[in-house]
Design a binder for these strands. Structure first.
Lengths: 146, 146
DNA sequence: TTTGAAATGTTCGCGGT
DNA sequence: ACCGCGAACATTTCAAA
């Protein structure tokens, strides 16, 4: 399932990670190709599925959702992975769901307005699906690549 | 530190989360404003720090980095939070670092090519900084909002 | 806030390597 | 298969109302 992506493609991906709205002209200048060549390469990276989309990065604290936490969930042995993701992702407070192998079955990334809101979110998770136990870590700070 | 962001701003943020390369014209049509008004709003969201940037979403498995894991790290009590982030973020395998309150001090999101590579990454983390213990969860699947 | 016009960027066909 | 060129089309940007 791996694909051929050369050094220039990697440069383009790096440039787009730094700024997803960069123009083709700007990228063309940086990698030393024509504008059309750059567009064709980016189009191809989308077609073969290396690029799955573009998005905006938001400071949620500025929007009043300044508290983040990870909650590890354990489910009944009969609960399928798909079911875990489906039930957890319904909560608007859930930013991401990772199904994992280890003591826990899932790791949930929560984003909330305050502690009361967090409590409510965790309670909701415990009630939805067949949750048998939770363990929550408050996020003090985070660093994300690029 | 919270700011005033109205319903139209939220619509624009939602549209940009779905596709960060949407044109102002397209957004203008969807929210019922002129193109210039939309541009001014997006510019303002950047200025006040709600929008911190734009980026591309990549399928890393297609690039041959198909294994992901979370590693919980415990550090010596003398280790500062800044030091934890600084040492961990140096590894290219580290996708994100979350400093947390709880049993562990940090939660590291790793992305690697294979199991040998994962082992090497965790070993490196254990050696860098004052790590006193680790616990790793392999990621089986993930769902991320939008 | 909108309008309007110039500058800039995107898209695609075609010919060349 | 990949590139560059050029022309048509679309978007961005900003000044003025």
């Amino acid at each position: 399932m791996s694909v051929d992506v050369d050094a220039i493609d990697h440069s383009l991906l790096r440039l787009l990670r730094q700024d997803g709205r960069r123009t083709y002209s700007e990228m063309a200048e940086k990698v030393g190709l024509s504008v059309a060549a750059v567009k064709r390469r980016v189009d191809r990276l989308r077609e073969i599925g290396v690029i799955t989309g573009f998005t905006v990065e938001i400071d949620h604290a500025k929007l009043g959702w300044g508290i983040e936490a990870f909650t590890e969930l354990r489910y009944l042995g009969t609960t399928g992975v798909e079911e875990i993701v489906r039930s957890a992702s319904m909560l608007p407070e859930v930013q991401a769901v990772f199904t994992v192998a280890g003591e826990s079955d899932a790791l949930i990334w929560l984003r909330v307005r305050d502690m009361a809101h967090l409590k409510q979110g965790i309670d909701h998770l415990r009630r939805t699906g067949n949750v048998t136990g939770t363990k929550t870590m408050m996020i003090l700070g985070s660093w994300i690549r690029d």
